[in-house]
Design a protein around this nucleic acid. Structure first.
Length: 482
RNA sequence: GUCUCCAUCGUCUAGAGGCCUAGGACACCGGGUUUUCAUCCCGGCAACACGGGUUCGACUCCCGUUGGAGAUGCCA
């Protein structure tokens, strides 16, 4: 058995859709789990869609996802070039072979225009050019007539193939169109370039989304026309999105962030994204959910692939992200979260390590950090009603009574740290024979103005500093006596 | 419209005829721990789309219905 070779063949669009990334992941996983090779090929046959730096985005994404390739534009493995626009001449050559063998023909029809779609489709399947005299057609091409090359499909037959995931699939050729192989601009269509390149690059397993399932017979007809061996197909279930109305369709922008870049910019960790999408359509057949890439490669099996579409669940991604965040070391968390915190250039910058420690297991995604710590920079407006807290028996009235003494005791505290501050508060409670929670709540509201804060009053005041803390308590007192 | 595929909790899934009074996870709801919140722990809610077969026995096999998705581009 020859070596397994899989490929990831993205089109340089400037962003990496998570569905695409998952395809890359499975192709990579398959190659790695079999000790094979993973090839990166850039499919830039659509010149109208050219986007600057798009290839860089692909490299960057693959790198941060941890999917290393063995061959690619930047890593020659002897099957290059790995960028389709650089292979342009090849496709025409192969397409003409097909014309000569009768498996394809020149077509001189006008380009379809979008408006009259339906009629044109009919026409393309029964293109009159299919029956043109071949010598005459060749002459027209030689004279420079604009043309495309279409695949000639024997519509009397039935095609069948076996997919590694979906099993046996049968399609009658009569529903297949004479698809275009080579465009008027001399560039191949995706379908054609794919077949040629996959063969030339010795790809053994074609891993792609199941949206290609019904066009696969066209590919196979091409392989057969060339006399090439058909690769193993591994069609993947689609990734769906659910909209506000509950309608499910292919995951797209309307469902939320769908590109790897957007997701990481939103504060999701690459590892969490990869782990999450690995489980969207594939199961390790165990209850385990957290996997490193290496562990995934070890556990991966085609038989674990699912057939039915999977809905992308941002909530679960969030949870997975929080799991990854919690597993970060305190230092790692602090440095990874810093860019999202918005503390640079503020008084909080020097205290970031302490703040980060409080944030660590309260963070699901990094983007929620700024709002969690906003009160540290500016005391928010709050209602005195906030001093009400049933469990600790705190209310505005007893707060107004307790706060002055609490303030004095805090003012007299020399070593201003969380532990000592808490000591003052609980000492006060002990003396007065009240619940410790009461002064804790009273003071926390006074200095934060928030019912929910990362950390308790001790930690908050340590970060705020003595001066600012006392100032906020004074303001609270003013509020309460007003 | 036509073709293809799919069908277990709201979501991701386990289940390859008896192990299923269907397991796990997210979400949700309770309870405990905690100075708030969170973490953590414990518990709960919740599904085999429907109808026929096959079989001693069907979530698992077959057929149909219904529902959903995808394809039908000189996009990939």
């Amino acid at each position: 058995m020859s070596e397994v070779r899989t490929r990831f063949a993205p089109s340089p669009t400037g962003f990496m859709h998570v569905g695409n990334l998952r395809t890359a992941l499975y192709a990579w996983l398959l190659a790695r789990s079999e000790g094979g090779k993973f090839i990166l090929r850039i499919e830039d046959t659509d010149q109208a869609r050219y986007v600057a730096n798009a290839v860089e985005v692909i490299y960057a994404t693959l790198k941060s996802a941890g999917l290393d390739h063995d061959e690619g534009p930047d890593k020659d493995g002897g099957f290059g070039p790995y960028i389709q626009s650089e292979r342009k001449g090849l496709y025409r050559e192969y397409a003409e072979k097909l014309v000569n063998s009768g498996h394809a023909y020149y077509c001189f029809c006008d380009k379809c225009d979008e408006e009259s779609d339906d009629e044109i489709h009919e026409a393309s399947a029964l293109c009159p050019c299919a029956s043109l005299d071949s010598a005459e057609a060749a002459a027209r091409v030689a004279s420079g007539a604009a043309h495309v090359i279409r695949q000639r499909i024997d519509r009397s037959k039935v095609s069948s193939f076996t997919d590694a995931v979906f099993g046996e699939i049968q399609i009658e050729n009569k529903v297949l169109d004479d698809q275009i192989l080579l465009k008027q601009d001399n560039m191949p269509t995706y379908n054609f370039a794919n077949v040629v390149d996959d063969h030339l690059m010795n790809i053994t397993h074609v891993v792609r989304g199941s949206e290609y399932l019904s066009s696969t017979p066209k590919y196979n007809l091409l392989y057969e026309a060339f006399g090439w061996e058909i690769p193993t197909y591994v069609h993947l279930p689609l990734i769906m999105g659910k909209d506000a109305e509950g309608n499910v369709s292919k995951l797209s922008k309307r469902h939320g962030s769908v590109s790897f870049e957007n997701l990481t910019a939103e504060g999701y960790l690459p590892e969490a994204i990869v782990n999450y999408i690995a489980l969207l359509g594939w199961s390790p057949k165990s209850d385990r959910e957290i996997f490193t890439l290496a562990e995934l490669a070890e556990a991966f099996k085609i038989s674990g692939l699912n057939k039915s579409p999977a809905v992308f669940d941002y909530g679960k991604l969030r949870w997975m992200n929080s799991e990854y965040i919690k597993s970060l070391s305190p230092e790692k968390f602090a440095s990874a979260a810093l860019p999202f915190a918005g503390v640079s250039g503020t008084v909080l910058e020097s205290k970031w390590k302490k703040i980060a420690a409080l944030l660590h297991n309260r963070t699901e995604i990094f983007t929620e950090i700024p709002e969690k710590i906003a009160f540290l920079l500016n005391q928010p407006e709050y209602d005195v009603e906030l001093f009400n807290h049933k469990k600790s028996k705190s209310d505005p009235e007893n707060t107004r009574q307790d706060l002055p003494e609490l303030r004095d005791r805090l003012a007299n505290l020399n070593d201003w740290d969380a532990e000592n501050i808490s000591g003052v508060l609980s000492g006060f409670a002990a003396e007065k024979e009240i619940k410790a929670g009461r002064p804790m709540w009273q003071v926390r509201i006074a200095v934060s103005g928030c019912a929910v804060t990362p950390g308790g009053p001790g930690e908050i005041m340590e970060i705020l500093g003595k001066e600012e803390s006392l100032k906020r308590i004074d303001q609270a007192l003013k509020k309460l006596t007003a």
